[in-house]
Design a protein around this nucleic acid. Sequence first.
DNA 1: AGCACGCCGACT
DNA 2: GTCGGCGTGCTC
Length: 717
Amino acid sequence: MQNAQILFPVNVPGAFDYAVPIGMELSVGDFVYAPIGKQMKLGVVIGLGTAEVGRELKAIAERKATRPLSPDMVKFVLWTAKYNVASPGQVLRMVIRSYKALDPSPIVNHYLPTGETLRQLTSSRRAVLREGGPFPARASEIASRAGVSAGVVKGLVKIGAMQELAMPVDAPFPVPDPEHPGMALTQGQEDAAKELAAQVKMGGFSVSLLDGVTGSGKTEVYFEAVAEALRQGGQVLVLVPEIALTQAGLERFAKRFGAEPAAWHSAIGDAPRRRVWREVAQGRAKLVVGARSALYLPFADLKLIVVDEEHDTSYKQEEGVIYNARDMSVVRAKLSGHAVVLASATPSLESLHNARSGRFAHIVLPERPGAAVLPEIGLVDLKETPAEKGDFLSAPLIDAIREGLSRGEQSMLYLNRRGYAPLIICRSCGEKLKSPDTDSWLVEHRASGRAMCHLTGFSMRMPTQCPKCKADDSLTAVGPGVERVAEEAARHFPEAKIEIFSSDTAGNPAAIKDRMDRMARGEIDILVGTQMVVKGHNFLNLTFVGVVDGDLALAGGDPRAGERTYQTLVQVAGRAGRAKKAGHALIQTHQPEHEALLALAAGDRELFIGVELAMREMLGLPPFGKLAAIIIWGPDRAKTEALAKKMVSLAPRTDGVEILGPSEPPVGRLRGQYRRRLFIQAESTVNLSRYMAVWRQKIRPPAKYKVQIDIDPQSFM
DNA sequence: AGCACGCCGACT
DNA sequence: GTCGGCGTGCTC
């Protein structure tokens, strides 16, 4: 009697055993329907066997006639679950985002002009014939293009001017052409491109770290690896940070490969989602550009994954199944035996360490083609040259902007804080305005006249009196946000065109592009922005970047703070004078002696990496040791604390594992829940996932209390 | 993820 | 006195 292990895309601890009916042929990866409880559910075969289970099993009802998941994909799902201490069903849920996508694309009528020349047509009919084609389209689509009703299209079929074709709703994606001429490469880029392409050509698992400063042509170089994989008839996945998934980004691919790639992100609509999923599963979508979740698409024949901006924190999924798409990409490539390219101007320390130790091939692109060099970076010691009282821009920053303006050049002020002021305080009673169910401060947004919580999205009209002591006009803005910095800049430079760029003001992708275009055309003199400005724009006339608060990311207990600061500042500084002139950057700081800032000012990346790696090694932090976190959530402060302490007391005793905490995270309350956090630091020889799984099983949190495990935590907020 | 079982407020 | 609210538990 044959049985099968079926994994359902639901949050249960593991797979269930079923009997395989006589005559049913099954393989690992097959989709099947099987009875579970009172319902019939779709699942995936993850194992087959003949061993007696010792109890009566229900039988599989039906094998679904659809392309099975590849056995590699099944392994990848299970591996993801095990490593991240999640249930495999929950991971499968990420793969099967839509059940309908498993069925073939529905067939509907499409319409195309026959080319028949007819006289005496109404204007509506002429419009339809003009707008129809060159490809067959749905009647409604042609009708809306022509500004008429769909009936007109069908009417034209009757008189033979249009033909009706039964076609799948999902149009196939255009096939990218690897031989489509791309941009000319410099010798250095050519060499790097050849090396990457050779890795792909050779086949088998490999990881390459493509390391090149802003403007070194990284994208063009990895395009050659993409081309090689396409030449072999395989599929390619390019992961990009969520924010980089713009029309402009997709157009770069279109330019190189003559066809726009299939795009994937979490907010994609239902119909396009099904289309991409189906075409990917059938192996017909050859080139997919997507955000992190695209890694869980069921590729039929994946040959290459590129992780662009591999250091970007948005690769970490922080909800549901907590995983890091960059790390999981390497796992997926290993399981399927293909190449991965990790690309970045500021690679993560983990990747640099892997490159240094020879686990990754390290391909360093020569600096920018042509004469341009990285901008000069200086530090402004705020202890010596503070800003005017109540202001945030010191004299050196203001002077630099003035100089730029006098030469007709652009400046950028960088501050990673949205809104007007990060804190609203009452001058008469000292009350700090907080979000109702959080400990986080409300941020004043003067442009919209509101007080907002950036964590929960809570927002209210900016009060005119203190909610506690009822004093009128006593609420004061404390600290700078981009709006306030822009206001200050406007005071200094009343004639300058100043714009704010943050997620509040950005708007939709089109509005973002518009603003970036205006910046590129020189229509903005001073751009004040949060980290949103940091992503890959080329501003020819930008020659100065002022970092308003270089200390921002240095504070707090985040062991990655130094790295983050360095990455951000390098990228921000890289905006300055990217093409023609060597621009300059100034960083305001209270800690000019901080190693990260000194290395930055010296323009010495190797020094920075060396210092930082040495510090990590000394502290046993990644990449030299392992790190995990446990977040305990609950509605009652004391009980949450008690549960956290109980977790600590239940921790399995093992050598090489140290438990830190419980501590209160920076935001102790979130969404009305109290939170406590533990950090688990382990030596590299410890199987930390298994340790965490064993530990997790020892406790059953009471109702409404949650224990969340985060392997390799990135966020310390 | 569903679906059922189970213990507390507004209805014929 | 019931109908039903959704909170918790189980599914091979």
